[in-house]
């Protein structure tokens, strides 16, 4: 048996976590606030759409996903005070005007014939953008100092991947004709155009690029 009192390295050889990370406390809080804002707007939209989609399978999946995103919002909400943001509503805000415009456009479809438009906005535009932003945060932050955010992001990303896959499969099952394909492409193009202007869900630099984009607003 080894000697329990013999000094060992504080970090195991396979533990490659490093200091510092890309974000200080303020930047991490700003990003988490933007995450909470987008997750909240998303779960509200999914909840509202349940009654407007006639497809029974879509209706039930929206109900399930609505809770997933609410849980993400709750995790981010709980993290904010730990990042010195006691007023959790202050940072729960869109990164810029274009992001607000994006959410308006995303949530706009209402009619029962527009299930493709609703799902494209969520599963082909927003969720891929969230996966990108969360992955960047996970890879860029210090996994020592920002470990609680990292842990939440790991759980959340698992949900996002699963939900994205399910949503994409729903869309593939709904898009049967050239007209439907055209609708999906057009919708994706419209929304991507706005989110490109926004620079991503946390604004410019969402995934590290910092080139200013014209029309993002502040």
């Amino acid at each position: 048996m080894s000697d329990p009192f013999k000094p060992r390295p504080a970090f195991a050889p396979w533990d490659r976590r490093e200091l510092p990370g890309l974000f200080d406390v303020e930047e991490s809080a700003r990003r988490v606030g933007a995450y909470k804002w987008i997750e909240t707007r998303l779960f509200e939209a999914l909840g509202g759409w349940i009654a407007t989609v006639p497809e029974l399978d879509v209706k039930m999946i929206l109900g399930r996903h609505c809770y997933h995103h609410a849980w993400h919002a709750e995790l981010f909400d709980k993290r904010l005070p730990e990042l010195r943001e006691m007023n959790t509503d202050r940072l729960c805000a869109p990164a810029n005007d274009a992001m607000e415009e994006f959410v308006e456009a995303l949530r706009e479809p209402d009619a029962p014939e527009l299930t493709i438009e609703k799902l494209v906005g969520v599963f082909r535009v927003l969720i891929p953008r969230k996966i990108a932003a969360y992955t960047f945060h996970l890879n860029g932050t210090s996994r020592v100092t920002d470990a609680p955010t990292e842990r939440s992001l790991e759980f959340i990303l698992q949900d996002e991947w699963n939900d994205w896959r399910e949503g994409e499969m729903l869309l593939q099952s709904l898009i049967d004709t050239p007209e439907e394909l055209e609708r999906a492409i057009r919708r994706q193009h419209e929304l991507e155009a706005i989110v490109v202007r926004a620079g991503g869900i946390t604004g410019l630099g969402t995934i590290g690029a910092t080139t200013e984009v014209e029309g993002a607003g502040v």
């Binding site: 349940i50 999946i61 399930r64 609410a70 849980w71 919002a73």
Partner: peptide
């Protein structure tokens, strides 16, 4: 309030299961 909305989202998941 935000917490009420979270409860409603949770209820959505529960009711979706009940539909299933």
């Amino acid at each position: 309030p935000f917490a009420l909305k979270l409860d409603m989202a949770r209820q959505c998941w529960d009711e979706a299961r009940h539909v299933e």
